[in-house]
Nucleic acid binder design. Structure first.
Lengths: 178, 178
DNA sequence: GGGGCTTGGTTCAAGTTTGAAACAAACCTA
DNA sequence: TAGGTTTGTTTCAAACTTGAACCAAGCCCC
């Protein structure tokens, strides 16, 4: 089949998207690097942990919830562990597994830096959008994400339409990415 | 001033955005790495060059148009030069400057791999959106990007509202990022 | 016409990401 | 229950990114 090129509208949208996502990620990374001493991804890892029951999550679940690869997560958690923001424990239910746990120090860091982060997200993003646009953005992103979720490149064409996973190691807590 | 946290709608939008942008970038990077042997950014650099007059652009202009730092670009162009996709020349008008030029080989690579890339952008993004959503996405991203454009962190508070730059070294050509 | 500031680009070290391989524990299943 | 496969995680080397220097070349202006 001959390529269906992008329409002019699609091209404009695509370019705008690329520009916005680069600039936005840069701005947020810079702000967090300055005030929290870590890039956005690392902050998100802490934020995700803070919302999980017991402020802890198995590595694979954490990778899934932050949308990153397991090896990237391993590296990140290793560093966060050195920083004292996270601690690793063996998973009691599954000897293969390990669990990342947000330490009190990590929680404190999060609480201390959350206002600045939210501020940046606000001024760079939400303050620029109307409430309708916020809704539109959510819809658009949700659709895209759904289409790509658990999109293991090596899954057979009409394989596994269902999705797995759920945490074993328990608790109860709060405080978000932004 | 006490922090204005994100509303529930904003939180949902923000999370969806983070997820979508990670997943999308990953999918596109994987596809391009496979079929073009380079990550998305590098492909974009070639695409940007292909559309510039003379298929060439000064480093700073290229960095500006791809929304990346100069040092990142230097590294990328060095690699693309090794690959034979790009060539560097001294800028005749300004002895400090250097110009990146898309080689015929680079152009051929682009033409060969563009269909696959467009295909991915289509199936992961545009096929999932209604025409209205494409328009909304463009608007949203344009606003965000405008707000962040040339956002040198070290620019004085109410400094330089105007923007500079324009290419010196000339020509004429085509073929887009997607 | 020689300082002093700005601009265009590169370099370097430290940090991060990638993807493939390695491992070990868990899960079949005959 | 041994053997084979899958799953959870880490490891390793190679590639990439970051930010702070650095080095010229242009600019300004007295």
């Amino acid at each position: 089949m001959t390529t269906r090129w992008l329409t002019p509208e699609e091209q404009r949208a695509w370019r705008a998207y690329i520009a916005a996502s680069h600039l936005l990620e840069d701005a947020i990374d810079r702000q967090l690097q300055q005030e929290a001493g870590m890039p956005h991804l690392y902050y998100s890892i802490l934020a995700n942990l803070s919302e999980a029951p017991g402020r802890s999550l198995r590595m694979t679940d954490l990778a899934e919830s932050t949308k990153i690869t397991r090896s990237r997560l391993t590296y990140a958690v290793t560093r966060l562990e050195k920083d004292g923001a996270v601690r690793r424990e063996d998973c009691p239910m599954d000897k293969r597994g390990s669990v990342a746990i947000l330490t009190d120090e990590g929680m404190a860091l999060l609480e201390r830096t959350a206002p600045g982060h939210v501020g940046t997200v606000r001024t760079t993003l939400f303050d620029k959008l109307t409430p309708e646009q916020v809704g539109q953005l959510e819809e658009i992103c949700t659709v895209i994400a759904r289409g790509l979720e658990g999109d293991d490149p090596q899954a057979a064409p009409d394989d596994v339409p269902w999705r797995r996973r759920s945490s074993p190691c328990a608790g109860g807590s709060a405080t978000a990415d932004a």
